[in-house]
């Protein structure tokens, strides 16, 4: 793999301040106790959600070790590949894109050491849209709160989704509770994340996300909250509480 050197050419979704934050933390992607600890802890719940929804949609057996064999996946804003690797293990043909070159390097080195073959690319999703390629699954996890031009970004994600495919998204809600928990709690009190990782003003309400996706031709079919319990140090799905973290599924509207 040649080291990605330059920045993506199509750059409307890029927010340079946001990318700088991730560039500064890139070395820690795979440290389960490092800056990305919350994502590591969150991974089993969202993987189960993705697996179960996708298995139901594509009529696959969730007890199989490779239920995604033959499916193509695009992970937008893949970071170090925390989702790309599990999905590749489940048999999917995975493409991971990110706008930070160091993330792509780290992700590539790690997947190779893990014996997985994943197509990592330094690119934005609008750049990929130019290739006119459609995927069975498009992942848009914990990214919208970091992009510029949310609607344009969502439309580009929609364009990359196959007509019979599924889109998964997750983000933080713009509520006082989210501010309190994710920023004050997560960044200041628990010291999970470096201060300033999240900009509350960039959080996205479910209604805004739903509208933005609709603009990109995607209909939301499922929405659930995801809540963290400090007592058990575990995340779990909670369909009634979308106030802080939430996650959902969409399909191409016909």
């Amino acid at each position: 793999m040649a080291a990605p050197a330059e920045n993506p050419k199509e750059t409307r979704s890029i927010d340079p301040d946001e990318l700088e934050k991730f560039r500064a933390m890139a070395e820690e992607w795979w440290d389960p106790d490092g800056k990305f600890r919350p994502l590591h802890k969150f991974n089993p719940v969202r993987l189960q959600y993705i697996r179960d929804q996708a298995c139901a949609h594509f009529d696959r057996d969730p007890a199989s070790l490779t239920p995604f064999a033959g499916l193509t996946v695009l992970d937008v804003g893949c970071g170090g590949g925390l989702l790309c690797e599990p999905l590749a293990r489940l048999g999917a043909d995975v493409t991971g894109i990110d706008a930070v070159a160091r993330n792509i390097e780290i992700a590539s080195i790690h997947s190779e050491a893990s014996g997985l073959s994943i197509d990592y690319r330094l690119a934005t999703v609008e750049e990929l849209a130019g290739e006119n390629r459609q995927f069975d699954l498009v992942l848009n996890m914990e990214v919208v709160e970091h992009v510029a031009d949310v609607n344009g970004f969502l439309a580009a994600c929609g364009a990359a989704l196959d007509d019979s495919g599924l889109m998964f998204f997750s983000t933080l809600n713009r509520t006082a509770k989210a501010f309190a928990l994710a920023i004050v709690g997560g960044e200041y009190i628990l010291r999970w994340l470096p201060r300033g990782t999240h900009d509350w003003r960039k959080f996205v309400r479910p209604s805004e996300l739903t509208r933005g996706l609709a603009g990109g031709g995607i209909g939301v079919t499922e929405l659930t909250g995801v809540t963290y319990s400090p007592l058990t140090d575990q995340w779990s799905l909670n369909p009634r509480d979308l106030d802080v973290n939430y996650m959902g599924t969409g399909i191409k509207a016909r």
Binding site: P32, L47, R51, S64, L65, E85, A88
Partner: peptide, 13 residues
């Protein structure tokens, strides 16, 4: 159970 989620089976937790 972990592997059915695609997880690395050598993960410390």
């Amino acid at each position: 159970d972990a592997r059915r989620l695609g997880r690395d089976i050598g993960t410390p937790d």
